[in-house]
């Protein structure tokens, strides 16, 4: 337990120390939330009066994706390249506890991200409603799906390739994610693809869970659940520790 707690502390300190992860996990989602709430240029779904109503759930989705996929993938990729994962495998910590410490550190970062985004959203006039408790299982499923994708890259590609691929995927899924503008604005074919991706399903689900008078679409639950099982399973199969 002592080893596990120290490992969690180390994971969190390293995350906080990496400028890129602070930028990606906090500065970008908060910045987008503030900017597009105040500068009303983005389309929003019919019936939504203020942009912050749409943007807060969307940017919580972006924050979860940044932490679980991009930040985890890049950090793990470099740890693999530097032989850290290999070396820790021959300590009493072991691979199992290393993995659970990483998962716990993601959860801690997500709690901080959600808290900050909720507070900033509220300050900008966001009034949440709907089946809000469902946001927790939605975020858990999405974290599993994105962590699977991040570890899939980290465990099978070179660290520099993972860095590029994770950032590229981040941009793609941001644009196809319904996070800063609704999926309904996309062309039909693209929208169907977007809804089958974990990013689109996550933002649909969070908009459903956090908006008065709405609910989490069944399709979003199914898409998230499939990704949450499939991505970690493929990652576990293809992951090379060194």
């Amino acid at each position: 337990m002592k080893a596990w707690r120290s490992q969690l502390g180390a994971e969190l300190r390293l995350t906080a120390r990496r400028g890129d992860s602070v930028l990606l996990n906090l500065a970008i989602p908060v910045g987008l939330l503030v900017f597009f709430s105040l500068v009303d240029v983005l389309p929003r779904p019919p019936g939504v009066r203020h942009p912050v109503q749409f943007l807060t759930p969307g940017l919580i989705a972006l924050a979860v994706m940044s932490t679980a996929m991009v930040s985890l993938g890049i950090a793990t990729g470099f740890e693999r390249q530097y032989g850290v994962l290999k070396r820790l495998g021959s300590t009493p910590l072991g691979r199992g506890r290393l993995l659970t410490a990483k998962i716990a550190s993601i959860a801690v970062v997500e709690v901080v991200q959600v808290a900050v985004l909720v507070l900033v959203g509220l300050a900008l006039g966001w009034s949440p409603g709907g089946p809000m408790g469902l946001a927790v299982p939605v975020i858990l499923l999405a974290t599993g799906a994105f962590a699977g994708l991040g570890l899939l890259m980290a465990g099978s590609l070179r660290a520099e390739v993972t860095l590029a691929a994770a950032n590229g995927l981040y941009l793609l899924l941001l644009l196809l994610g319904g996070m800063i503008f609704p999926l309904s604005k996309l062309p039909t074919a693209l929208r169907d693809v977007a809804r089958a991706l974990p990013s689109g399903a996550l933002s649909d689900a969070l908009h459903g869970a956090l908006t008065t008078g709405s609910s989490v679409p069944v399709r979003a639950w199914i898409v998230l659940a499939v990704w949450a099982v499939a991505a970690p399973a493929v990652a576990a199969r293809l992951f090379r520790w060194e």
């Binding site: 390293l14 740890e79 530097y82 850290v84 290999k86 070396r87 021959s90 300590t91 009493p92």
Partner: peptide, 18 residues
């Protein structure tokens, strides 16, 4: 054995930022 053996890899093995 992990608690009873010490290992020094040919290279690396430490967090780059630590």
């Amino acid at each position: 054995l992990t608690g009873r053996m010490g290992v020094m890899l040919q290279r690396g093995g430490v967090y780059p930022g630590m």
